[in-house]
Design a protein around this nucleic acid. Structure first.
Lengths: 131, 131
DNA sequence: ACCGGACATCGACACCTGTCAATATCGACA
DNA sequence: TGTCGATATTGACAGGTGTCGATGTCCGGT
């Protein structure tokens, strides 16, 4: 539906195709549809608990973590953590793999990089050191 | 208050210091304070109208635009556009300069790059082409 | 087959947010 | 000084969102 060309992410899962590839918003004005799509992904990132979840999962041993690993460091109830994880999975920023009784979540690095690529200025011109 | 080290952005304006510099969230778990700060910036980006405003301003002639340039292409009322612009300015993503009767908004490229830097993975490991 | 534990879903609640019409503010110009 | 026009602010409303307790689901072990 959206005219965006997705990355090589598997967009078989509904809610995937988080952002456009190679279309930094500083280049040309976003269409209403593109803006809505991007905003959907940004909304998933616009919450302290979810940002911490992403970093907790990424920094966890093996790059994956189950709900029980995340509930305590966040200080939130288990249903709330499950809710946030579902939002992140629906946004294509995490993947969920059920092994036995546990559900292991992994960061989708390409999705994070794709979001970053849309926000960043295409070439140099950073004036301040972007590190 | 926050332990984040800001970029060379002018953080004299309240609401500046949008994100940490050189602290990608995939490295180490975010503290609650850092996550709250980052989320505040992400919330400003998590709206279709505001994303379009950023791209409209960036793509506009001279890299700046006044409210009257933005109201019509967005299809929103003037107060609503002013509201969104204020949110973006408070987040440090736009700057406002009043010249005569008009208010000109400009994109803060460093802030956008800083946000992108926090989200992106530090080194390679993109697997998919991030362009 | 039963039980226990890990996780997801549901229902409800308070709070936040995007939008607009109406109004206020403020600078330019006659 | 008074008017006009560009922008900001206010007030109000509908809809969305984060949170939790309670409950459901499903797997592994006894």
């Amino acid at each position: 539906m959206v005219t965006l060309t997705s990355t090589t992410l598997d967009d078989t899962r509904p809610g995937a195709d988080p952002v456009a590839c190679c279309a930094p918003l500083v280049r040309a004005p976003l269409t209403a549809e593109a803006a809505t799509t991007l905003a959907r992904t940004m909304k998933a990132l616009a919450d302290p608990a979810r940002l911490r979840l992403l970093s907790l999962v990424a920094a966890h041993e093996g790059g994956e973590a189950c709900v029980c690993d995340l509930t305590e460091p966040l200080g939130l109830s288990q249903p709330t953590v499950s809710h946030h994880l579902k939002v992140l999975v629906d946004a294509g920023l995490l993947t969920r793999e059920k092994r036995g009784v546990w559900a292991y979540y992994t960061l989708v690095t390409e999705a994070m990089n794709a979001v970053a690529a849309v926000l960043a200025a295409p070439s140099g011109r950073t004036s301040a050191s972007t590190c």
